[in-house]
């Protein structure tokens, strides 16, 4: 049977890889880098054969002409990122191996559990997959199964559905007839604003939300999370706070068990999330 050997939840802040390379980086960066090193080490020790990488497309692969709620990549290698992200964030392009067989197995298993993923044989990954890999698996040598969500183009699937899809992914993986060691890497954010009146502020966007959100995850409080994360509730904490929904999916993957590490780091930026679970 397959085993989930590690679950890591982390930021996909696309400005950070470039920021970390600057000689005069802001003082808070040291704390962020320390946490990233810790998460990278946790993932290394778990020795994954495949990484299920969950993130949300940012109107790159997805657009409102054809908007899936949840999509799984079905390719043997993935390229990223897109022209605008190279221009705006200075992100380099990458090519990451894919585990096509695992993509198929997760998709078909999910169908049997009532989750109808859209799929793509031509998926380009954006910063929601590239940046977390840059942080915790910079070698980009472990084959991935990308799972993308719609957290950005309303109407969004409901928070409860994010949890259920996470649970379904877990149930499918637990029953897979494979000896592969599977890690799940989830990216998202806590309170955040982009493209609104409060963007680019070097401080926490909504400290109360951040504390509540980390609390829901720490305690495995699914009701707390799903009852406070509707589209309208989340937008009160910043217009792009909906990226937190990926972490509700992560709670589903963890079957609402308590994480070994949970933090919304205040380092002079909007809160930077760090979550992890090891194999039980």
């Amino acid at each position: 049977m397959a085993e989930i050997v590690s679950i890591v939840g982390i930021t996909h802040n696309p400005f950070m890889p470039r920021l970390f390379k600057q000689p005069n980086r802001p003082p808070g960066c040291a704390k962020v880098l320390e946490r990233i090193d810790m998460m990278r080490e946790k993932l290394r020790q778990a020795k994954p054969d495949v990484i299920v990488a969950i993130g949300n497309d940012h109107l790159h692969q997805f657009f409102m002409d054809n908007m899936p709620a949840f999509m799984i990549g079905k390719m043997d290698a993935y390229s990223g990122t897109f022209y605008d992200e190279i221009r705006e964030f200075g992100l380099p392009t990458h090519r990451v191996p894919g585990d096509l067989e695992m993509s198929d197995a997760i998709m078909e298993g999910a169908f049997d559990r009532g989750v109808d993923f859209a799929y793509s044989n031509e998926l380009t990954i954006d910063h929601s997959i590239i940046v977390p890999l840059t942080f915790v698996r910079p070698e980009m040598d472990v084959p991935i199964v990308p799972i993308l969500t719609n957290c950005i183009a309303p109407p969004l699937p409901r928070p409860k559905r994010f949890y259920e899809v996470g649970q379904a992914i877990r149930a499918v993986i637990d029953k897979l007839q494979t000896n592969k060691r599977i890690a799940v890497l989830v990216s998202g954010h806590l309170s955040l604003e982009v493209g609104g009146p409060r963007q680019f502020e070097r401080k926490l966007m909504d400290p109360n939300f951040d504390a509540s959100a980390v609390g829901w995850i720490s305690q495995g409080d699914v009701n707390g999370a799903v009852n406070h994360c509707s589209f309208d509730q989340l937008k009160q904490s910043g217009n792009m706070t909906h990226g937190f929904l990926n972490f509700i999916m992560m709670m589903g993957v963890a079957n609402a068990s308590k994480p070994s590490y949970a933090e919304g780091l205040d380092a002079g930026f909007p809160a930077i999330p760090f979550f992890s679970w090891e194999a039980s």
């Binding site: 109107l59 221009r87 950005i152 982009v194 493209g195 217009n239």
Partner: peptide, 16 residues
Amino acid sequence: YALGAHPFTLWSFTEA
């Protein structure tokens, strides 16, 4: 922005 352009893409576009 006032007309309801998606804020995430609008900022990136504006900068570009």
